[in-house]
Simulated scan of single mutants.
Amino acid sequence: MTGMDTRFLGIPDLVEAPSVAVVVDVMRAFTVAAWAFAQGAEKIVLAESLDEALELKAHHRDWVALKDGPPAPGFDAVNSPALLRSLDLGGRTVVQKTTAGTVGALAVKEASLVLCASFVVAEATARLLRTRKSGSVTFVVTGEDGQADEDLACAQYIARRATEAGTDAAEFLRRAVASRAAAEQAEGVRQGVRPDDVALCLELDRFPFAMVATLEDSLMVLRPHSMPSLADEDPI
């Protein structure tokens, strides 16, 4: 794959459904989602609102509901990879509602392919774009109305990596480390965050799967997508 037409847009800039969308939320929605799958979750339902998350939980008592910010009645967990990695989610369904990541994914739910991404699944995401030979890709930079540099850096890295497999991540990770979100989380400004969340969010290629969101019975559902070996990158 030698070329890919890319756009980098904030959620407010989305005026029509793209063909292929990569929704990026590094700190923390789609780092948390990846950890949920690593801890055994079967799928993640991306909720439109806190009320919808609680309603889904009420109808499915065994589902695990998580949200941004501090703990709240009815929710089982908060949007922290450090906290989530201690949970056993084997076979469970997680309901996730965050202020940026889930909003971005729902904004492009009509796209033919929706990937949710962060640094921990960057290479797998880039490889999926390569195998699909996606000519036009919209990267949704979810944080700070499209201005979050950790999300933009990750999006630009994935875009570059999809066309240039030798791209080095160092400069992109440096930008993420220096971002406002990283500083606020490290300093404890944001509620529901552990200090070690930043390091976990910047752990490059921690997991070997991409994350694909599709509409299932009107719900936006995220599932892990394992990638074939590097020697077998035929279109899927």
Rank of each mutant, 00 (worst) to 15 (best):
F207H: 10
L46I: 08
M1Q: 09
E52A: 13
H225G: 00
F8I: 12
G135W: 00
D76F: 14
R161F: 01
G104W: 02
R194M: 15
I44H: 05
V95S: 10
F37N: 10
A165E: 12
L152C: 03
V114G: 07
P195T: 09
K133M: 12
K109W: 00
A153V: 11
P18L: 05
E144C: 03
V189M: 09
D13I: 01
G91V: 06
A162Y: 01
V95G: 08
K67E: 00
A77C: 08
G143C: 07
P224M: 12
A53F: 10
V177M: 07
D62N: 13
R180C: 07
A29M: 04
R223N: 13
S218P: 02
A47K: 08
A82T: 14
A124D: 06
I236S: 13
S19N: 14
Q191W: 00
P224E: 11
E144H: 04
N79Y: 06
A183V: 10
A58R: 15
G188S: 11
K67L: 09
Q96A: 14
S136Q: 13
A169R: 01
C201Y: 03
L9N: 04
V108M: 10
G166K: 03
V103F: 04
V114K: 06
L204T: 03
Q156C: 08
F207C: 04
V221E: 08
D13S: 14
E187M: 13
L14P: 02
V198C: 05
G40N: 11
F8Q: 11
V95L: 14
Q39D: 08
E150G: 04
T214S: 15
V94H: 08
L173V: 14
S118Q: 09
L152V: 03
D5H: 14
M1F: 09
E187R: 15
D25H: 01
V114S: 09
R175H: 10
T98A: 05
C116V: 12
F172G: 05
S218A: 15
L84R: 05
A100S: 13
T214N: 12
